[in-house]
Design a protein around this nucleic acid. Structure first.
Length: 825
RNA sequence: GCCUGAGUGGUGGAAUUGGUAGACACAAGGGACUUAAAAUCCCUUGAGGCUUGUCCUCGUGACGGUUCGAGUCCGUCCUCAGGCACCA
């Protein structure tokens, strides 16, 4: 055994060993319990960063621990390989997105391998691979057949020079993030996934996700945004057409005095046409649509509107309600039209005051008379209906139902549930994404690519234009095809899919990554899913996790999956922070993982990542802390070196108190570490316990063991337990020590040590003695001491007597094995 | 504004079910070794007090409450972080 810890040599040695022996390769085995552990796969940006390291180290501890517990652990890794940065780099450096991506994957795979993670690399997936997106295209068509995919016109952020739709997060201050041009709102055709079909189930199933952080569930519930209310039809004056609104306050319908439409609402221009308001409305709508979002609906945005020159009729009062377009009405929510009840809605109130519109009070609170003329703000709370015809006097809560029922009987609306969540627009006018497998035919319209023509391969043998535009629409040889239905010349869809589509099902594909008989191999899928533990950043709390839940439900309804939910347990790890801020290039506080590995070895880096904070909290990076982790490993190395030649005694002839206490601490630590990893994911406290254990062992010298073979046995076992407990955290370090101690290599295949309750028994107990709840003394009592004996010993304590002298003992509270509280008065 | 979290020494954090507050580590100070430094090892380290003890008082964002006993439970409030936000 080397007298000094040399991480560079041993890390290379053990990584080679694990790879050669295929230690982490797993296969379906019905005889064994499976455990599917997954960390969110990375975007191949080129270099791994500390956030990745932290995420994957946390996962690796769990994986190795479960392996040692005898589970058949599926622990895969892959690449979320489509996306804009590849195109961006291509424009900047003149490389091809595919080449850039493949090189990045190569580099990052090399970096990940240096951390010594327990992945089954034989299952590696890159989502840009045609054999991956082939099945995504297949699924797209199946979903289309079930009505879960459709095409519609919608209003999107659009950058003209770049010729693409931009996601909201790609618009900065109203400008394109890449070219700086003002983004415009443009109506455009696009493909949508009907996630709203599952809105209710996605919401309800949140209650069953007991292994998810409450925080994430709350965010998802808010995002889905269910609200109960009514839909109401307002007939247009001099027309048979109606405007439909959604409201949560049908009880205030008698007080609706005007109507507000979102500027995007098609009726704005239609109704004002030919009226004296036509020009004003055009100007207003145009302004609202070209304005950036913050200016229009931001915190300080002014509420503005314009009369359309048209009226609709209140279905219950018959009142002529002027129709306005208002900038604060969201086209995306409800129906994009709002019945305005100024007396009972603050926005409508302000709007009515500004434009001189009628305010009619229809809800009266108890003990206060509202007067429309003197109100300074809307009354939005509960009360009784007034000015509401047959409903006068009913409380407004029950009026919600009765008013809705009346509307329903009139055919003018009824109770309904509205969701905030929108359908998922997946069309991107980008090149580097999975092609949408559709053919547009003049005769047949939209025709899916036939299954036997899948995958629709993204052409890669092309020059990538410097303009940044997708080259696909210009690629005549690719775009021009014959219609699979009627055979006439037709054109391919040139939009590609949002990259969130790939990440919505990759965890299923890991169960059978090379299967070519279908999207998923039912046998493998049935054995491995659901994911038992998913680990990743909180930034995916809504999008990725919600989309994945949606896909699992869609796959279930297609008869492919049998689970309702993809991820049984979710751990959201915190960010890596340095000098109080998230590591970023712009702040100049980035720490390069590889430099650290060069300097200290990956085991030290791993140990620090796991020790400095519990996983879900942010981790403050300090170089001193890393030094500390390295020092600890050196101390353990030296300790093991010191005791490496101890032999397990043939027979034990003596009894040693030190041996007993070492044995007790060994098993106590085993219990603590097992429990912390198993049930709590508290690696920081597990490591702290190991440190304490190691500190105690450090106090024993080899000379002590010569005198007692009882102690020899205790230390022999303690040192081996110490090394084993470190194996999930610092696996190379542990394997090397284990081997030097004569152990078998491949520790994940060796059973995790169990603790023995018999060794945990203490010789004596430390009892805290309190007087009136304040600690006044502590006493050591024999384990078998009776309550009376403990009380007598406590009362005999000098410092206790000081505080009870001259007072009456009211009672004594005994917490067995821990504490005695003497209550005096 | 609403919804989540969180607030403990100089710092990161611990205290798992209401029972010794500050484990473990970092930093700092002192000492040993060394010609010296680094490394390593040992000691001290929440604040305050004097009577220097198996001592006392205070102390977990603030103020109340429940309890024999509260970092932990309840109420009110403050601060910070994250999410949502004119959602009809």
């Amino acid at each position: 055994m080397e007298p000094k810890y040399n991480p560079e040599v041993i890390e290379r040695k053990w990584q080679f060993f694990w790879e050669k022996e295929e230690i982490f390769k797993v296969e379906l085995d019905n005889a064994k319990s499976k455990y599917y552990l997954l960390e969110m796969f990375p975007y191949p940006s080129g270099r791994i960063h500390m956030g990745h390291v932290r995420n994957y180290c946390i996962g690796d501890v769990v994986a190795r621990f479960r392996m040692s517990q005898g589970f058949n652990v599926l622990h895969p890794m892959g690449w979320d390989a489509f996306g804009m940065p590849a195109e961006n780099a291509a424009i900047k450096h003149g490389s091809h997105p595919a080449v850039w991506t493949i090189n990045n994957i190569k580099e990052m795979r090399r970096q990940l391998k240096r951390i010594g993670l327990s992945y089954d690399w034989s299952r590696e997936i890159a989502t840009c691979h045609p054999e991956y997106y082939r099945w995504e295209q297949w699924l797209f068509i199946r979903m289309m057949e079930r009505g879960l995919v459709y095409r519609k016109k919608s209003i999107v952020n659009y950058c003209e020079p770049c010729a693409t739709v931009l996601a909201n997060e790609q618009v900065e201050d109203g400008q394109c993030w890449r070219c700086g041009t003002n983004v415009i709102q443009r109506e455009q055709d696009g493909w949508f996934f009907k996630i709203t079909a599952y809105a209710q189930e996605l919401l309800e199933k949140c209650d069953e996700l007991s292994g998810w952080p409450e925080k994430v569930l709350t965010m998802q519930r808010n995002w889905i945004g269910r609200s109960e209310g009514a839909r109401i039809l307002f007939q247009l004056e001099n027309s048979d057409d109606s405007i439909e609104v959604f409201t949560t306050r049908p009880d205030t319908l008698y007080g609706a005095t005007f109507m507000s439409l979102a500027p995007e609402h098609p009726l704005c221009l239609k109704l004002s046409r030919g009226t004296s308001q036509e020009a004003a409305v055009q100007k207003f709508v145009n302004e609202a649509l070209t304005q950036d979002w913050q200016t229009r609906v931001g915190e300080n945005a002014e509420k503005k509107g314009v009369f359309l020159g048209a009226y609709c009729l209140n279905p219950l009062t018959g009142r002529r309600m002027p129709i306005y377009s208002a900038n604060f009405v969201l086209f995306d929510y409800g129906t994009g039209a709002v019945m305005a009840v100024p007396a009972h809605d603050q926005r409508d109130f302000e709007f009515a005051r500004k434009y001189g519109l009628d305010i009619v009070v229809v809800i009266q609170p108890d003990g206060e008379i509202l007067n429309a003329g003197s109100m300074t703000e809307a009354y939005v709370d509960e009360g009784f209906l007034v000015n509401s015809g047959e409903f006068d006097g009913t409380d407004n809560i029950s009026a919600k139902r009765s008013v809705s029922q009346k509307l329903e009987s009139m055919g003018r609306g009824g109770l309904t549930i509205n969701y905030r969540i929108r359908d998922w627009g997946i069309s991107r006018q980008r090149y580097w994404g999975a092609p949408i497998p559709i053919i547009h035919c003049e005769n047949c319209g939209i025709v899916p690519a036939p299954d036997d023509q899948l995958p629709v391969v993204l052409p890669t043998d092309i020059d990538f234009p410097a303009s940044g535009r997708s080259p696909l629409p210009e690629l005549d040889w690719w775009v021009n095809v014959t219609c699979p239905k009627c055979g006439i010349p037709a054109k391919r869809e040139t939009d590609t899919m949002d990259t969130f589509v790939e990440s919505s099902w990759y965890f299923d594909r890991y169960t059978c990554p090379r299967f070519d008989g279908g999207i998923l191999n039912p046998k493998e899928l049935g054995y491995w899913v659901p994911v038992d533990q998913y680990i990743g950043g909180i930034e995916h709390a809504i999008l990725h996790l919600l989309y994945s839940r949606f896909f699992t439900k869609a796959l279930r309804d297609l008869g492919i999956k049998s689970q309702d939910e993809p991820f049984r347990n979710l751990l959201t790890q915190g960010m890596v922070i340095k000098d109080g801020a998230k590591m970023s290039k712009s702040k100049g506080n980035v720490v390069d993982p590889e430099e650290l590995i060069d300097k200290y070895g990956c085991d030290t880096v791993r140990l620090f990542c796991l020790f400095a904070a519990p996983p879900e909290r942010d981790l403050e990076w300090t170089s001193e802390g890393v030094e500390g982790a390295a020092r600890f490993l050196n101390r353990v190395w030296n300790l093991v070196y010191l005791f490496k030649d101890l032999h397990f005694p043939k027979h034990i002839s003596d009894q040693s108190d030190i041996a007993r206490s070492i044995r007790r601490l060994t098993h106590k630590t085993l219990k603590k570490v097992t429990d912390d990893i198993n049930n709590r994911f508290r690696f920081n406290t597990a490591i702290a316990a190991i440190m304490e254990f190691s500190n105690e062992l450090g106090k024993i010298s080899p000379r002590d063991t010569m005198a007692s073979n009882d102690l020899t046995e205790a230390v022999y076992s303690a040192v081996r337990s110490l090394v084993f407990m470190l194996s999930p955290f610092t696996p190379h370090f542990a394997e090397e020590l284990w081997e030097n101690l004569g152990g078998k290599s491949g520790m994940t295949r060796i059973a995790w040590p169990t603790y023995d309750e018999a060794f945990l028994v203490e010789d004596s107990l430390l009892i805290i003695v309190q007087v009136n709840g304040k600690k006044r003394s502590e006493i050591n009592v024999p384990v078998d001491a009776t309550e009376d004996q403990i009380k007598q010993m406590a009362l005999a304590e000098l410092n206790v007597q000081k505080f009870i002298e001259g007072k009456t003992i009211r009672k004594m509270i005994v917490v067995p094995g821990k504490l005695l509280n003497i209550v005096v008065g």
